[in-house]
Design a protein around this nucleic acid. Sequence first.
DNA 1: TAGCCGATCCCCT
DNA 2: GGGGATCGGCTAA
Length: 287
Amino acid sequence: MASSKLSCTMGQKKQRALEAKRHQNPSDGTQMPSPKELHLGPPATLGPTRSIYFSSPEGRPARLGSAFFDQPAVSLARAFLGQQILVRRLDDSTELRGRIVETEAYLGPEDEAAHSRGGRQTPRNRGMFMKPGTLYVYLIYGMYFCMNVSSRGDGACVLLRALEPLGGLEAMRQLRHALRKGAAGRALKDRELCNGPSKLCQALAIDRSFDQRDLARDESVWLEQGPPEPSEPAVVAAARVGIGQAGEWAQKPLRFYIRGSPWVSVVDRAAERDTQTGARACSHKDF
DNA sequence: TAGCCGATCCCCT
DNA sequence: GGGGATCGGCTAA
């Protein structure tokens, strides 16, 4: 991404604000599809060859099939970033779309921070043990939902933490607004719509009724391959958020996000420095 | 802008 | 009965 170069000379917050503005108001000549264009059908640019991951013979050529999800959690968490677009079709056929920019990997029984630690399998976390691509949606703090996608490996999954909203932003804003405490408050900025695991669930109207659904087959929620980026996004590997009790597992760099993205929920400058100097190098060898 | 803290209730032990 | 993969309002610097 061109923005990674900018980050050397510009403060990150400023850069993020500029990026957000550019996405909303492209003035650099780059053609950004309008939300309406994004709303309609699959992306126009699918590339010359069809990946084996693509399924659905009729209609939705860009939808990702079961094979895509059948990879280890770390690998899947990284594969989600940048080019995968989460689509949610509401009952009135409105389609909400967002590009995945931040994920966390939970590795299964050995991972002290995972709900499946020690091999625990309960009615709540059953989705973690189901076939790759199964959703695990649970209630947290009595008020919010979090959305995971199971990966290869028993009890392993990927938490979706943030999206870059691409289509249906007004519907997202309404959904978020309706669920906030001070519902009479100010309108949410675009970057506040999906920059957190529960925020994105609110914005996409994802609740527990989505638990254990198959992301490769469901009619209301699926994943699409987005238009190709000019270059691979720079990915930062950082410690996961909100798992202070998990000992050494709390420190492992199992959270992944796109460097410089204004849509990410939590920025970790130390991890970004490590990644830049190669000290952490975003390598799977860490695990 | 960063840090603190209350809200809220299900799930697990 | 206690804790939690969060969020947002408030306050201080």
